[in-house]
Nucleic acid binder design. Sequence first.
DNA 1: TCTTGACTTCCAGTGCGCTCGAAGTTCTAG
DNA 2: CTAGAACTTCGAGCGCACTGGAAGTCAAGA
Lengths: 142, 142
Amino acid sequence: MAITEIEPRDYSISDAAALTGLSVHALRYYERAGLMLDRVPRAASTHRRYRDMDIGWVQFITRLRSTGMSIRQIHEYAEMVRSGDGNEVERLQLMEQHRQRVEAQLHEIEGHLAAIRFKIDLYHERIANRCALQPPTDRTSS
Amino acid sequence: MAITEIEPRDYSISDAAALTGLSVHALRYYERAGLMLDRVPRAASTHRRYRDMDIGWVQFITRLRSTGMSIRQIHEYAEMVRSGDGNEVERLQLMEQHRQRVEAQLHEIEGHLAAIRFKIDLYHERIANRCALQPPTDRTSS
DNA sequence: TCTTGACTTCCAGTGCGCTCGAAGTTCTAG
DNA sequence: CTAGAACTTCGAGCGCACTGGAAGTCAAGA
């Protein structure tokens, strides 16, 4: 990631990997799977040159992945964006659907977390009782 | 799930599936994978008869699964519980580790959700602008 | 008793999301 | 100019968590 200009314009695939937290394999896979808005430009017609907008897009779809959107769904979304302006309403619907799913997911996890905390409290209690019932071996240490 | 007594004591595998939200396949798989505390008792030495405690256990490990704990990890936890009392501290540690992971996961999802909401707001804006710039075709309809 | 459907075991198959390796090409530091 | 690291494509392989099907057994209502 050598800085050659005041504002770097593009990045190698390993730079992109470092910037997004994905592996180079995953980045190539994403492109093959049609997740990028267009074919990532190549330098000298071979090596990929990720632009800032490409990095930004990968970072966004990584958020979608992390919240459970499948590769297939992201592909559909990318196709929409690719097909140009005019379908903002559709895209909005897709995003709002996803938002709702994520919100539901969040509530679910909160419920599970509460149950896990409850279980943890039970263990604390049980351990406390055991200590109270057993004669202390050494009160001074640790 | 025919109620034969005042308090039903056990359930068929399809009852268990209904009660836990898992498939009968998954229930058998869980048992094979060593996730149950002990072999689920059989009636007439063939059909599984899930007791209340089995159902409860499955419901709990389903929470662990839903919060991202792997089958392998749940197996380890089940082995601990199986090996009897005396390792409550270890079990507690395992659960607290998981709790922390889930809490981190929760915060991450919240961050992603914020980004998704931001994107949605952008769409709303863009759609509003488009409508403002385009001459209305029919002000009376819808 | 008969029939029908739910159950049993065992093993192979599936879908997802990467991950790896081969074989060849290109970039870069010395 | 050269060595070696980083890149390219392509296709196969992997780990996970189930899922499905075959072949046989069991159970409950008509």
